[in-house]
Amino acid sequence: MPETRPDMGIGELARQAGCKPETVRYYERIGLLQAASRTEGGQRRYGEEAVRRLTFIRHARDFGFSVPAVRELLAMSDRPDMPCQEVDAIARHHLEKVESRLQRLSALRDELRRMVDQCAGGKVENCRIIEALSAPGRLD
């Protein structure tokens, strides 16, 4: 289906995709979103394809995919006949990173609970939280 005439301004594109105009400019600058056509007065003009692509980018970023991963996913989405094993591999790799991050956050939560539970509410000079934060070493 051919692209309709680009008649949408940057504000309308941003509104439809659920982001801000600054985000649109950023994605154009880094090449995730194709540079817009311009009016004689220099205003950016977008069509429906830009809404689809920007929505894709925004959703991928909301899921925590890195800009390079989004770039790869966009390139693959532009080739609908290709097998999706590469898409699956990117998603699986990202899932592994998310699960690892969740494990680290869970350990951090447990340690923070322990520190808070040990706090007697006295003076800072005897505070177990300050003591734990001042101790050498990290929770990694």
Rank of each mutant, 00 (worst) to 15 (best):
D117G: 04
A120E: 15
R53L: 00
Q34P: 00
R5T: 09
E49Y: 00
E22H: 13
G41A: 05
R114W: 09
T55R: 08
N126C: 11
R128K: 08
I57M: 03
Y46A: 00
R29M: 05
P80N: 06
C119S: 11
A89Q: 06
R92V: 06
L95P: 15
R101P: 11
E86V: 09
M1D: 02
R92I: 10
R38S: 00
V70Q: 05
V67A: 07
S106E: 06
D81C: 08
V24N: 01
R92F: 09
K97V: 14
Q43M: 03
L108F: 11
E125F: 10
V67L: 10
R101G: 08
R92M: 12
M82R: 12
D7N: 07
R92D: 07
A135W: 13
E22F: 13
L102R: 09
A107Q: 04
E131V: 05
P21K: 02
K123A: 14
G31M: 09
I30V: 15
I10Q: 00
A107E: 00
R71H: 06
Y46N: 01
T23S: 11
G42L: 05
H94W: 07
L74F: 00
R113F: 07
S106P: 05
G31A: 06
S77E: 11
R104M: 03
T39M: 01
A35R: 03
F65M: 10
V98T: 08
V51C: 03
P136A: 06
D110N: 08
P136M: 14
A35C: 02
N126W: 10
G137M: 07
L133T: 12
E22P: 02
Y26E: 02
G9N: 09
D88Y: 04
E22V: 13
Y26D: 02
L105V: 09
Q43I: 03
A14L: 09
A91L: 15
V124R: 14
Q16R: 14
V124K: 09
K123W: 11
L105Q: 15
R52M: 04
G31I: 04
R29A: 08
R79F: 04
R104I: 00
G137N: 11
D81E: 08
D88P: 02
C19I: 13
P80K: 05
M76L: 13
M1I: 02
D62W: 12
L95W: 09
M115C: 15
C84G: 07
L133N: 08
Y46I: 00
P2C: 13
C84N: 14
P136W: 07
V124M: 13
A120F: 13
A17V: 02
A14Y: 04
R101Y: 14
F65W: 12
E12C: 10
E40S: 08
D117L: 03
P136E: 07
D88C: 12
A35E: 03
E111N: 06
A91T: 10
R61C: 09
H59A: 15
E49V: 01
R71T: 06
R25V: 01
Q103K: 13
N126A: 13
E99W: 05
L33K: 00
R15C: 14
R101M: 11
E3Q: 09
A14F: 07
G11Q: 10
R109E: 07
S66R: 14
Q85N: 09
Y46Q: 01
L73H: 08
D78K: 03
F56W: 10
R25C: 02
R61Q: 14
G137L: 11
R79Y: 06
